[in-house]
Nucleic acid binder design. Structure first.
Length: 602
DNA sequence: AGGATTACTTAGGAATCAACAG
DNA sequence: CTGTTGATTCCTAAGTAATCCT
């Protein structure tokens, strides 16, 4: 080897070794100050290594919720009027039911039956012999015990509460964080789910079933090979320890109700989740560029010779226009009967050639995710209407509306139209674009901050309505509305009084033009102005509240609205970001707060 | 190809916390 | 200071969609 070659080799080796150092320094000294770029660079980096989500992952495993503490001897369970001492396992399950006694769930037959079935399975043979009917079980004393215990906890002294808080903080500190690629990151759900009775939403066939306690033997740990592997609690073992860096979860277990997996994952504030979130909105922005083409195509497909294509085109139209969910098929009898677009049945829509002065109206009425009702009357294009008539012909109410379509077929089609496009992207896209348009239309630059916030909430509300994000009217709604009205009335009265006083003061000024009278007029004027402002603010509040009664704004804000739209709006109109994003939201959207200027356009 | 499994996002309600009025 | 109320945080169920498996 010639000295020259050796030199060249050393030269390259030297720089190869230096590369990580250079990279580190670069990111440290250059990118941190210009943090706007940080996310961009990181994303670029991630794209190159396919499937690998991290290089280093170290954590302590899940925090296991405390074991069951038996009831004191004087708290009794009664069967058929007679006290009955239960075995520990049976007693624990009894407490699950007892705790829920004043919840609506326990009045439902399915809940009762499922509970009783599962409970009996865990009883000793002797208990099984005695306890044969749920309605002979008396849990009242146990119920009262827990109610009292709750009260007692609330009534604890400041110091005692502080102590409990400190203990919780200690657990959070120990189990609530992990090390991911050298950064300490917050974990989302670091505790195992406690045992209890399954609370499904809507008409769930499994409500009331026993949700078993998770033990270390059920848990799979995922971490990096060279990290400090978490210790299972003493006397226990993990089900498995694996080192899979193509997934983002830290631990998982199989839940016994649906036999599905549960995961311990990172908090939304983490870099990993933030990048994913950002990516999601970038995909939606790409849809913006091609959506016109896609719309033109599905409109053309309404007239296709193939039934399959027509169904696809009509379904996509619904997903686009009404922001419906995709609607995967689900196993019958395992979950509540809910549907999305592709799984709509004939019974879920009604067709009206004419309704309330509109033509070709489709009336939707079905239960969607979480058994939330979707009810809407929409006037559609004539070909859509004709197609729906065709799809419904010779079908029973319980038949699929789109019998030749599934989410898999639809998504395969979408994938061809745009890289990364799936049905749910339309929801993200339509939500974000609606917010941007509504903000443009509703914001008045002359308004006060409070007025601008009302506009923001209204824009947010338009999105929530589009996405059908509902909530049950808060229990205290009527009362708090009344309180607000009382306040408004009081303010009005004050205002009238101030008005009168001002007039009087002005009269007096006309009468004796001295400095004192002049000052008085000015004072009264100021007071009047202030009261007017306060009244306006209260009225705004009342409007906002009423309009928000059954609408949940949080879900769209957290999941569908590109935070950069909101941040740009704040910057443009001088509204502090804290007014629209609370602490958690600011943490989740740190990536966006970092990179957004006032001229950002979705 | 298509059903099953896995991984991850989205969702509303309950529990808890903080702010405010009385 | 204390109880009420609204806001925030926690919890975990219920979706979507990718991937695995046969």
């Amino acid at each position: 080897m010639t000295p020259f070659l050796v030199f060249v080799l050393c030269f390259f080796l030297f720089f190869a070794c230096l590369l990580p150092v250079v990279k580190f320094c670069y990111s440290f000294f250059l990118l941190v100050p210009f943090s706007r770029r940080r996310w961009g660079v990181l994303w670029e980096e991630e794209k190159t290594n396919d499937g690998v989500k991290w290089k280093q992952l170290e954590h302590k495993g899940p925090y296991f919720v405390p074991l069951y503490e038996p009831l004191p001897d004087d708290v009794q369970f009664y069967y058929d009027g007679k006290p009955l001492k239960l075995s520990l396992a049976t007693e624990e399950i009894a407490t699950f039911y007892a705790k829920m006694l004043d919840h609506e769930y326990t009045t439902k037959e399915i809940f009762q039956n499922n509970f009783f079935n599962d409970w009996r399975k865990e009883m000793t043979p002797q208990e099984q012999e005695i306890i044969k009917q749920l309605d002979k079980c008396d849990f009242k004393e146990i119920h009262k015990y827990f109610v009292d215990k709750n009260e007692a906890r609330k009534a604890l002294s400041k110091e005692e509460k502080q102590k409990l808080k400190e203990e919780a903080d200690r657990i959070q500190e120990e189990y609530g964080y992990c090390i991911l690629d050298g950064h300490r990151e917050k974990i989302g759900n670091f505790k195992t789910e406690p045992p209890g009775l399954f609370r499904g939403r809507g008409d769930h066939p499994k409500m009331g079933m026993l949700k078993k306690r998770i033990m270390p033997e059920d848990v799979i740990i995922n971490c990096s090979k060279d990290s400090k592997i978490p210790e299972p609690p003493v006397g226990h073992k993990w089900k498995e320890v694996r080192f899979d860096n193509t997934v983002t979860w830290l631990a998982s277990w199989t839940e016994n109700i649906q036999n599905s997996l549960k995961y311990i994952m990172l908090n939304p504030s983490s870099k990993l989740k933030g990048e994913k979130d950002w990516q999601k909105f970038e995909v939606a922005r790409r849809l913006k560029d091609v959506v016109h083409r896609i719309r033109a195509q599905y409109q053309a497909d309404w007239k296709s010779k193939e039934m399959k294509k027509r169904q696809r085109a009509v379904a996509l139209y619904f997903i686009d226009k009404l922001a419906l969910r995709a609607g995967n098929e689900k196993e019958e009898g395992e979950t509540a009967d809910t549907v999305g677009c592709c799984s709509l049945r004939v019974e879920h829509i009604k067709l009206h050639s004419k309704l309330d002065g509109q033509e070709h109206v489709v009336e939707f009425d079905f239960l969607g995710k979480d058994s939330i009702r979707y009810y809407n009357k929409v006037s559609v294009e004539k070909p859509v209407f004709k197609n729906l008539q065709l799809f419904m012909k010779n079908k029973d109410p319980g038949d699929d509306l789109f019998d030749r379509l599934s989410t898999v077929i639809l998504n395969k089609h979408l994938q061809k139209l745009m890289n990364g496009l799936t049905a749910k992207v339309f929801r993200t896209y339509n939500a974000s674009i609606t917010l941007q348009e509504q903000l443009k239309a509703l914001t008045n630059p002359e308004d006060s901050v409070a007025g601008k916030l009302l506009s923001y909430n209204r824009a947010n509300r338009a999105v929530a309505i589009l996405c059908n994000h509902q909530r049950s009217t808060p229990k205290t709604f009527e009362k708090s509305m009344q309180n607000l009205q009382t306040k408004i009335d009081a303010k009005k009265e004050k205002l009238e009084k101030a008005q009168q006083e001002l007039e009087e003061a002005e009269d007096e000024l006309k009468y004796k033009k001295d400095a004192k009278a002049e000052a008085n007029v000015q004072k009264k004027k100021k007071l009047l102005e202030r009261l007017k402002e306060q009244l306006a603010k209260l009225n705004v509040q009342a409007t906002d509240k009423e309009e928000n009664k059954q609408i949940a704004l949080g879900t769209s804000k957290l999941n569908y609205l590109d935070p950069r739209i909101s941040i740009a709006w704040c910057k443009k109109f001088g509204v502090p970001i804290e007014k629209i994003f609370n602490k958690t939201q600011r943490e989740k959207f740190a990536w966006a707060i970092d990179m957004t200027d006032e001229d950002f356009e979705f």
